[in-house]
Design a protein around this nucleic acid. Sequence first.
DNA 1: TGTGGATTTGCAACAGAGTTGCATTTACTA
DNA 2: TAGTAAATGCAACTCTGTTGCAAATCCACA
Lengths: 149, 149
Amino acid sequence: MQLCCKSTNPLVNLQKKAEEMIRYRGERITPGRIHTLAMLLSERRAVTHHEIEERLKGEHRFDRVTLYRVLEWLNEKGFVHRLVNADRVWRFRANIHEYSQPHAHFECLRCTKVVCLDDFEAAHDFELPAGYRSREIELTVKGLCAECT
Amino acid sequence: MQLCCKSTNPLVNLQKKAEEMIRYRGERITPGRIHTLAMLLSERRAVTHHEIEERLKGEHRFDRVTLYRVLEWLNEKGFVHRLVNADRVWRFRANIHEYSQPHAHFECLRCTKVVCLDDFEAAHDFELPAGYRSREIELTVKGLCAECT
DNA sequence: TGTGGATTTGCAACAGAGTTGCATTTACTA
DNA sequence: TAGTAAATGCAACTCTGTTGCAAATCCACA
């Protein structure tokens, strides 16, 4: 299990990688998409819109609305996924490695940090009410992270 | 497994029950608390602030801020718990039956309705990163409810 | 039963995350 | 390279929830 492991590649390589990922799908390449996806590829934690905005401020000027739309687009196209925790703020994370593979999240009750627990197996069959159909299972372990213990 | 099973008791009895519950803990009785808790006791689904407001409109006039504060108080005191789903809106549910007992939630991807799956057993031990401590496990099954299938 | 004082309530104003409309700019196709 | 559909920037907006403060209410105690 690995947490928050920054890629060893320089960010430039990730920008190339992001560009390739988008081009491969036949979608339009824009600076917003490249920079945002590259940033998310470099980060294994799920990060907020605000955090992304702060981090991209240096290399590329961005309107916040544009960033919202880029994130929504990346989510729609399956490049990233998003989740919401107790502070009711969207958090985004690249889908690389595990396209559509379910995994659990850990949420720190004190600092509200969210990390992904990749080796979760969604092997549990749930008995649902009649007529209900399960599509995905989201599991969040809440507690205290190492810094907050 | 039961879903959204309205109590067979008339609402008046639930108001008495709510009052007893609060009095038993030595807390102050107010109309807001009684009506809100009674309403939540009658409902097994997790409901939003807005839904509660609508439903209480007839019997008791309420300021929305007061309702927010009542809900926060009920949550703090352990009479209800709250959860947030993909629409980033708090949902509240009475804790009766299962004080502090973990259970899963089902969230409909189309109508965003949330129901509680009571017979979930949080028997899964998770391998957490070093220094991390688990306090509770939240499990959400996402899919389509009977009406939306 | 009446009263003092801490709690709760109502109102207004605010805060933060996210959305919408629209004119301008950009990426890509032909 | 030009035309066009898509993406961007800006301003204004919505929606959920919060804060400050004066007025009303609850309840312990006399």
